[in-house]
């Protein structure tokens, strides 16, 4: 756990989700803390996306989710949206909006139906563009960008909300190695800047390299919630993922490399 870690801003207790009568997430308990990047790992079908959507308030769930002292279920949609930014899988953009307009959508939770764009909104958008290095193509239609550029724009949109909690579902999927590092670095920066960041990550190496804490999910249950070294031990990875890993030490950080199936 990082030395700068603060108090829990989001606390989930006994969260369970059933979809179509089937339990997808069972009795999940976890806390997201200020200044921490928490990675959520687990095999396909473990229930990671469902857990993240439940934490974002997008799915009805049993149990209790408390954000900043308020019960998530009791928050009106707009107030919930001001507190939790959510980055779904896939970076979908249906219309060729200019990048700056897409990022400005992150300010939607702060706008009244009839209010104009405020100075705060402009500053937040400019900051998100600068942080993600997307200001260079702010005026380009978002649909003309490459996958790596789109991922940064999607992240900028989520950052522009300036919510205390950021939930990201597989933000590095289908990105080249450099952009994987860029995006993970941005998520860690967002945590260091005072946020609580929770990201679904498939790449165990990236999780070990960037996360302050790793939560491991298997068959709908949280089976580990600890430091990367502890959560991603060779034995646990073998048990959860069914793969044998090599632990490689790079610059003092021990990272697991998936080697062969067991």
């Amino acid at each position: 756990m990082s030395a700068t870690a603060g108090n829990a801003i989001l606390q989930a207790t006994g969260v369970s989700v059933r979809l179509g009568g089937r339990p997808i997430v069972s009795d999940a308990c976890l806390a997201l803390r200020v200044n921490e990047l928490t990675a959520l790992v687990g095999p396909n079908g473990a229930g990671k996306t469902t857990l993240v959507r439940a934490l974002a308030g997008l799915l009805p769930s049993e149990g209790r989710i408390v954000i900043g002292g308020r019960d998530l279920a009791s928050l009106p949609p707009r107030e919930r949206a001001q507190r939790i930014a959510y980055l779904p899988q896939g970076n979908v953009f249906h219309w060729p909006l200019p990048v700056a307009d897409v990022v400005a959508l992150g300010r939607h939770p702060h706008a009244d139906p009839f209010s104009r764009v405020s100075g705060d909104d402009r500053a937040a958008v400019a900051r998100a563009l600068a942080l993600t290095g997307t200001e260079g193509f702010a005026d380009r239609p978002v649909t003309t960008l490459s996958g790596g550029e789109r991922a940064r724009v999607a992240l900028a949109r989520a950052l522009a909300t300036q919510a205390p909690v950021l939930l990201a579902d597989e933000p590095t999927v289908s990105l080249d190695p450099r952009h994987q590092l860029v995006v993970m670095g941005l998520l860690r920066d967002a945590a260091r800047a005072g946020g609580a960041v929770f990201a679904v990550v498939h790449d165990l190496t990236l999780a070990a390299r960037f996360a302050d804490r790793v939560v491991v999910m298997d068959q709908g249950r949280i089976v580990a919630d600890a430091t990367p070294a502890e959560a991603l031990s060779t034995e646990r990875i073998a048990a959860v993922f069914g793969v044998e890993t090599m632990a490689v030490s790079i610059g003092g950080v021990s990272v697991p490399v998936a080697w062969r199936e067991i």
């Binding site: 959510y86 779904p88 249906h94 909006l97 897409v102 949109r157």
Partner: peptide, 9 residues
């Protein structure tokens, strides 16, 4: 434009 899940969020 961001899809239904993102819009809901």
């Amino acid at each position: 434009t961001l899809g239904e899940d993102a819009a809901a969020s």
